[in-house]
């Protein structure tokens, strides 16, 4: 007869069976979200990150910002009062990995874009307590000192393209993007122009306040300033988003 002892004393078998048991949970909970029609809301405006924003997001991850800051406003009244409209699935559809987070030591950042000025972000990232005395956030002074490494931006975009983010390499892909996002955005998503786009964006907006240098601060602030700004909620009836649940 099959004995439980057989599993307990055979680590390979135990591992395989445990994986199967956990796999069933994953299959039931995660897989359907990929084919159920209503998972991702159909809204205008959501686009993949521009090259500069993408570098900013990578720095956000490198510095572990997600450990203290979530990017997920839940549909509760207190969160709506503080952070704004609840997050949509559509808003993080191009995030790999997603930045929803699971713990808020600092505030949620899902809609921090445009809330504070660029100069505030620079000052606050450099020395948080110089503007918010009660803050416990660490200082990140090196963001202003480090030149932004951007020569591998094409590779970073290619990697995301492999997991489904519509950055374009060929003429057909570019044309499809023009169709989907409009010409202006499609240009930003073109991997062949990634470097010049990144430099042009940094030059135009000068996020770190120093026009002579391209620093990691430029990229991070560019990223922070676009968070949660892509969807114009005034265009939609609140009842519309309910249809997707």
């Amino acid at each position: 007869m099959f004995k439980h002892e057989t599993i307990e004393t055979n680590s390979a078998l135990l591992t395989v069976l445990a994986l199967i048991a956990m796999g069933i949970g994953g299959l039931v909970e995660i897989v359907p979200l990929h084919y159920i029609n209503d998972t991702i809301e159909k809204v205008d405006g959501v686009r993949p990150y521009t090259p500069l924003e993408l570098r900013g997001r990578d720095i956000y991850q490198r510095e572990g910002c997600f450990l203290c800051h979530s990017q997920m406003i839940r549909p509760f009244r207190d969160e709506a009062l503080r952070y704004g409209h609840y997050s949509l699935a559509a808003e993080s559809q191009y995030d790999h990995p997603f930045q929803w987070g699971s713990k808020r030591t600092g505030p949620d950042l899902a809609r921090v874009g445009g809330k504070y000025s660029n100069e505030w972000h620079v000052q606050h990232l450099k020395a948080p307590r110089s503007v918010v005395p009660e803050s416990i956030m660490p200082n990140y002074p090196w963001l202003l000192e480090n030149d932004l490494q951007y020569l591998d931006i094409g590779d970073r975009m290619r990697a995301l393209k492999k997991v489904g983010v519509p950055y374009s390499l060929t003429k057909e892909e570019y044309d499809a993007n023009v169709e989907k996002f409009g010409e202006e955005v499609a240009k930003m998503l073109d991997i062949n122009r990634a470097e010049e786009n990144l430099l042009a964006e940094a030059q135009a907006d000068n996020f770190d306040g120093n026009p002579n240098r391209l620093t990691e601060m430029d990229a991070l602030v560019a990223y922070l300033q676009m968070l949660g700004t892509l969807v114009d909620f005034s265009k939609y009836d609140e009842g519309y988003f309910v249809e997707f649940r």
Partner: peptide, 24 residues
Amino acid sequence: TFVNDKGEEVTTHWNMRALFLKDQ
């Protein structure tokens, strides 16, 4: 049951978004 932006009453199956609107 909640009221959408057009002022119409909408009744839907249980979900957090509708519950949130109703609470609002």
